[in-house]
């Protein structure tokens, strides 16, 4: 068995000290070592985006990054999106606009959109659709995901101004 390394991760504002094989993906570390199973694995080769999390505020495919590479970085997963019982505007918009069916791809889409809107809160509708084409969904046909992100972006802009 390959040697394990001790790594300290900062995930959703909490510190996790884990002992992991260098070959272990960040997705596996989050799911199995940190117990954060909201991050899902759909393809494990970086295409579907179900495993998308934020690393230092940027959307990252956690299946394509080693856990050891996350040392010293700030990770945010879907579990860290809501503010206690209050849903994040993206989560609220997905709920109200039927932006999910089986829910398997949903965490990846939420984190992708959260990262993209953090970087550019004023994305045009076309830009939003373009960013969302990074990830795959098999149930919804995307229309309601795109709509939810557009409405959430509007809501988030309104809150910033207020």
């Amino acid at each position: 068995m390959p040697d394990k390394r001790d790594v300290t991760l900062a995930v959703n504002g909490k510190t996790y000290a884990v002992s992991i094989e260098p070959r272990r993906s960040l997705a596996d570390v989050l799911r199995d070592d940190c117990g954060l199973t909201g991050t899902h694995l759909g393809c494990e080769h970086g295409v579907c985006g179900a495993c998308t999390v934020l690393v230092n505020d940027k959307p990252v495919r956690s299946c394509l990054m080693f856990g050891v590479q996350a040392e010293g970085k700030v990770v945010r997963t879907v579990e860290g999106l809501a503010d206690g019982d209050t849903l994040h505007p993206l989560q609220q918009a997905f709920w109200e606009n039927h932006g999910l069916q089986c829910g398997f791809c949903t965490p990846g889409f939420l984190m992708l959109a959260a990262g993209a809107l953090q970087e550019n809160p004023d994305m045009s509708d076309d830009d939003i659709k373009d960013v969302l084409s990074s990830n795959l969904c098999r149930c919804t046909g995307y229309q309601n995901i795109v709509k939810a992100v557009r409405l959430a972006a509007r809501e988030m802009r309104a809150r910033t101004r207020a």
Partner: peptide
């Protein structure tokens, strides 16, 4: 009616088989 299933799924609280298998 917004779906009763959704709040858990949106918060990463869904429970798929891999989530129970570690």
């Amino acid at each position: 009616l917004p779906r009763l299933e959704d709040p858990a799924l949106l918060k990463g609280g869904g429970s798929y088989v891999a989530d129970r298998a570690s």
